[in-house]
Amino acid sequence: MGQAWDFASVFANTDALIAGAIGTVRLFAICLVLGLGLGLLVGLARYAHSRWFNIPATVFVEFFRNTPVLVQMLWFYFALPILVPLEISSLAAAALGISLNTAAFSAEIYRGGIQSIERGQWDGARAIGMGWGQTMRRIVLPQAIKRMMPALTNRAIEVFKMTTLASAVAYVELLQQGKLIASLNFNPIEAYTTIAVIFFVILWPLVQLTYVLERRLKRDE
């Protein structure tokens, strides 16, 4: 010990950090939208009675929930380009890996939320002549979303944390920039501590929000 902590060189690289932050937020936004959007479709398919929807959805969910995201990411980055004559950028590989994983997890959240809506609501809607789609859209989902908010916000927090995995395929996000700064200035302590603090500062309010949502839900039920 005894060595003075050198945060100055970290702050000298603010533009690198900002570039990283932009990359993180961009990846986060893409994965959140794709993941939660696809998750809704898969969740509905999981809930459907028809085997044509149910079985493929179940296979999807089981596979992407039970494989590590990093493995999927590397597969998309190294393996997919061989199968398909496309350029797979690090953004694409990272986005695919994280989004599919998020879709699988959120599908189960959606399914659970929909199933928690008591059957009487379906009865009430059917009795006035509403079809499956109308009932889902107007009656069941609006009520289910409220119940799913804590779990879905949790998912969003996980997605934000997962963006760091993209550094493994050299995507420019916060951790990747941290690595860069550390290797250029030989100050891994300050660099990685700064990155950790940045994530903490961003995520802590969101985590508190989840607690508030959970408490409010418990109170309303």
Binding site: G120, G124, A125, A127, I128, G129, G131, Q143
Partner: peptide
């Protein structure tokens, strides 16, 4: 669904839609 428009039902447990007002419930169909 067409039949159910002609044959209405009132349930023991009401089955009102909690996220809509009274008039909203009646209007929904």
């Amino acid at each position: 669904t067409a039949v159910r428009q002609k044959v209405g039902m009132v349930f023991q447990q009401f089955n009102l839609f909690p996220h809509m007002t009274a008039v909203g419930n009646v209007m929904e169909g």
